[in-house]
Simulated scan of single mutants.
Amino acid sequence: MGSRKEQIGRNCPFCGAIVAYGEYFCRSCHKKFTDQSELDAPSTTRPDTYVVSVRQAYVSAILSFIGVGLGQFYNGDTLRGIAFFLGFIAISFNFITTQYQTVLFYGIWLVALGEALWSARRINRYERPFGGRASYLLYGMLAVYGLIVVLHFMTGEPTLGYLGRVFPAVKLWMG
């Protein structure tokens, strides 16, 4: 006696996964569709692709506010984070001198903050691929920044002037 398999749903037009009849949301790719007739459209992506996670824009902004490059590391942009951090350190510790030192100091900080927010928005709108986790440099940089702050509170060294070179918000607060 032959058994007949009956399909329990239709294919999602975005990822090709099976969607039960009457549903307007794909549980695999997390996309909504409004018309049931869309469900038999040919798929352009592999059925095993799915969204791993999204980025919280406010976390990215807070990290970028604390230290230049941290928001990029959080969004998985390791090379951008390194570029922002090295550029900021070069300006902050006078490796590069120019008459626009203060403008570049705050400019790099604000551009890094804006880029981290923009990148998180692009990740959340699925306009840019995301591997599902932050760069490992994020945790290393947070440890270094935490060590600097702990040393300051325990010993008074480094001074606030030095902290202002590492943390742009401290320099802004000091005036």
Rank of each mutant, 00 (worst) to 15 (best):
G22R: 01
G22P: 06
G22T: 02
G22E: 09
G22F: 03
E23R: 13
E23V: 11
E23Y: 14
Y24H: 14
Y24T: 04
Y24E: 06
Y24V: 00
Y24W: 04
F25A: 00
F25R: 10
F25K: 10
C26G: 04
C26E: 12
C26L: 06
C26S: 03
C26N: 07
R27L: 08
R27S: 11
S28F: 05
S28I: 09
S28N: 15
S28T: 12
S28G: 07
S28E: 13
C29Q: 06
C29P: 09
H30A: 11
H30I: 01
H30Y: 08
H30Q: 13
K31N: 11
K31V: 06
K31Q: 15
K31G: 00
K32V: 06
K32H: 14
K32F: 08
F33W: 06
F33D: 07
F33N: 04
F33R: 00
T34H: 10
T34E: 13
T34F: 13
D35F: 09
Q36T: 11
Q36P: 12
Q36F: 12
Q36A: 14
Q36M: 14
S37N: 09
S37C: 01
E38T: 03
E38H: 06
E38L: 11
E38Q: 12
L39S: 01
L39A: 04
D40N: 14
D40H: 12
D40C: 07
D40Q: 14
D40W: 10
D40K: 10
D40P: 04
D40Y: 13
P42W: 04
S43G: 10
S43D: 12
T44N: 04
T44H: 07
T44L: 08
T44G: 01
T44M: 06
T45R: 15
T45S: 13
T45F: 10
R46G: 08
R46T: 08
R46L: 09
P47V: 03
P47Q: 05
P47A: 04
D48P: 00
D48Q: 14
T49W: 06
T49L: 07
T49M: 09
T49V: 08
T49K: 10
Y50H: 11
Y50A: 09
Y50I: 01
Y50E: 08
Y50F: 14
V51T: 13
V51A: 10
V51L: 13
V52K: 12
V52W: 01
S53I: 02
S53W: 01
V54I: 06
V54H: 03
V54G: 08
V54T: 07
V54S: 05
V54F: 08
R55V: 11
R55F: 00
R55W: 01
Q56L: 02
Q56R: 06
Q56T: 09
A57W: 00
A57R: 02
A57M: 15
A57H: 01
A57I: 15
V59P: 00
V59R: 00
V59T: 14
S60Q: 03
S60Y: 00
S60R: 00
S60I: 00
S60L: 00
S60V: 00
A61Q: 06
A61G: 10
I62A: 15
I62M: 15
I62H: 01
I62G: 14
L63N: 02
L63Q: 02
L63D: 03
L63F: 04
S64V: 01
S64T: 03
S64G: 15
F65Y: 11
F65N: 07
F65S: 12
F65P: 02
I66R: 05
I66L: 15
